[in-house]
């Protein structure tokens, strides 16, 4: 992140206060860090059993957004975090997310910088590496990205597609959007409804992973599971198409659509 130009002003690790990592001072608590440095946002890498506590510390300190990279946080903890963040007016990104990147400016995440270029496509994704895959395609066709948001692969996450689409609608640097979904839940269906109702008016291309998934089995992500008849890739692709979204058969189709018919 430092290499990419993100202004990391402090690290917080209980018991390691006084240390320094890559020239960045480490403090025992956020409160202490705030006494010495000025900061806006927070990114959490704390192991799952302690992640709720760490994220709440950031919320209480007034940092916004709080990006939670950690995978494996109990859903009950995420529910509590989301509720407390909502009350405080804080945005939670994740958990189980690669984070955020604004190419050419800054990143608050763990994505490989080399696949991104400044450009006009907004990307919002439930997956990590599949998001890099599609971002690389978008870069290769010469479009680049205005802003990329990893929602996270857990069943409950702080942001959903609609929140990010709302933001992209008003972002002047974003001309079109790549929406990357996967099996499980109904976040894509709700995004399709939002688009149908005119909530989002810019062109959207989408890819949904998991057409070959087995119902009832968790495909890697805690949230990627077809339960009963809900959450299949086919149903998501269908409702998105009905909403006027260009849904790709292959990950590479997304960039092809954005460059071609939707460009």
């Amino acid at each position: 992140m430092l290499e990419y130009g993100t202004k990391i002003v402090a690290g917080v690790t209980p018991g390691r206060g006084g240390d320094e990592v890559c020239g960045v001072p480490v403090y025992d608590t956020i409160a202490e860090a705030k006494e010495h440095r000025t900061m806006d946002a927070s990114i959490v890498f704390v192991p799952a059993p302690y992640a709720l506590d760490a994220a709440l510390e950031a919320v209480e300190a007034g940092l916004d957004p709080v990006v939670v990279i950690t995978e494996g946080i109990p859903v009950r903890d995420t529910i509590e975090l989301a509720a407390r963040a909502r009350r405080a007016g804080t945005t939670i990104v994740g958990p189980n997310t690669p984070g955020l990147i604004k190419p050419g400016e800054s990143k608050l995440g763990i994505m490989p910088a080399q696949v991104f270029r400044e450009g006009s496509v907004g990307i919002v994704s439930r997956s990590g590496t599949l998001f890099y895959e599609i971002a690389a395609h978008v870069t290769r066709v010469g479009l680049g990205q205005s802003m990329c948001v990893g929602l996270g692969g857990d069943p409950v996450v702080g942001l959903d597609f609609i929140d990010v689409l709302r933001w992209f609608e008003h972002d002047e640097e974003t001309d079109s959007v790549a929406l990357i979904g996967e099996i499980g839940g109904d976040a894509e269906e709700r995004a399709a409804e939002f688009i149908s109702e005119g909530g989002f008016t810019k062109p959207v291309a989408a890819y949904i992973a998991g057409r070959s998934a087995v119902p009832g089995k968790r495909m890697g992500h805690a949230g990627a599971i077809i339960q009963g008849s809900t959450g299949t890739a086919e149903s998501k692709m269908k409702v998105l198409r009905n909403a006027g979204v260009a849904v790709g058969e292959l990950p590479g189709d997304v960039a092809r659509f954005l460059k071609g018919p939707l460009g």
Binding site: G153, I183, H221, L250
Partner: peptide, 17 residues
């Protein structure tokens, strides 16, 4: 074999296609 749930699912879907 892939790294990341979404990429691995997409790989399987691509093989199927």
């Amino acid at each position: 074999i892939g790294n990341g749930a979404g990429l691995t699912m997409a790989t399987i879907d691509t093989v199927t296609l």
